[in-house]
Design a protein around this nucleic acid. Structure first.
Lengths: 136, 136
DNA sequence: TCTTTATTAATAAAAATTATTATCTAAGGA
DNA sequence: TCCTTAGATAATAATTTTTATTAATAAAGA
């Protein structure tokens, strides 16, 4: 995991156990809901308030450390900032797996953006289906 | 707009003024939130219940007529079912514009899916940025 | 028109998110 | 190390969003 302590500091956010725990929880899970972050941290820090998770997720979203992954029909999950990529989202088990985005795809997205005078900042590419473990 | 009356009937959903109004509202707007559908229809049908909008959006999602478009940091919008496509989402004004998805992109998505034994059913491709009307 | 069954409106209930505030803690300076 | 202070947390309340309930209503076929 990147040095989030410095990253937080550079945006004027103090390094707290709660924030580092949230980042760690997201990092380990890859993609995780607010509720599950809360449950996760509660196991060794029983006083963590759910509101603290909400507040910090929001703040860390604003400074760009954390990214919301909204998923059709389900609750949003959160991931750490990373290069644009593809999500394979299983509609049976809910798993989310990252895959690299092909350069060709990026170029096409850039082209479409230019054609429409659209200033492209980021992309979210959700592929919905059934993962290999849920086919049978 | 397609013949939604028959489509509803084929799934055992009765054709009601409310349902047709919701479909029409989505069709005209292209992409619209639950709240805005409600507000929209209220103007000439003041008794429409918000719960009715929620219930019907859910039912029409289940039969595949309506699709949720979840948007990072904002409320979901809804669109009518259509072929996979790209969304240009303006982070300033919130506008959502559809663009055709390139065949090459579809092929790459198919390839990635096959490589991962993933049964691909649909995709949502959100390009976030600033639209031409909001640049200045 | 009548009958059946699903749908709606209205409301209540539940779930999710945000706001408030007293207490507490991180971080820098003495 | 010991203040000091600004910001953070926990606890809770308030708000917003979504879902469930039910009596009244309307659609669709006989």
């Amino acid at each position: 995991m990147t040095n989030y302590q410095n990253l937080l500091k550079s945006y004027g956010l103090k390094t707290t156990f709660q924030r580092l725990s949230i980042l760690k929880s997201i990092d380990i899970a890859g993609h995780i809901t607010i509720d599950d972050i809360h449950k996760d941290i509660l196991t060794n820090h029983p006083s963590l308030s759910l509101a603290t998770v909400y507040n910090n997720i929001l703040k860390m979203q604003n400074i760009g450390v954390v990214v919301e992954v909204p998923i059709s029909g389900k609750k949003s999950k959160y991931e750490l900032i990373k290069d644009d990529h593809i999500h394979l989202i299983c509609q049976k088990c809910g798993s989310v797996v990252d895959k690299d985005i092909n350069c060709d795809v990026e170029q096409i997205f850039d082209k479409i953006s230019v054609e429409n005078n659209f200033v492209l900042l980021s992309t979210q590419n959700n592929l919905y289906g059934v993962c290999k473990d849920c086919i049978y």
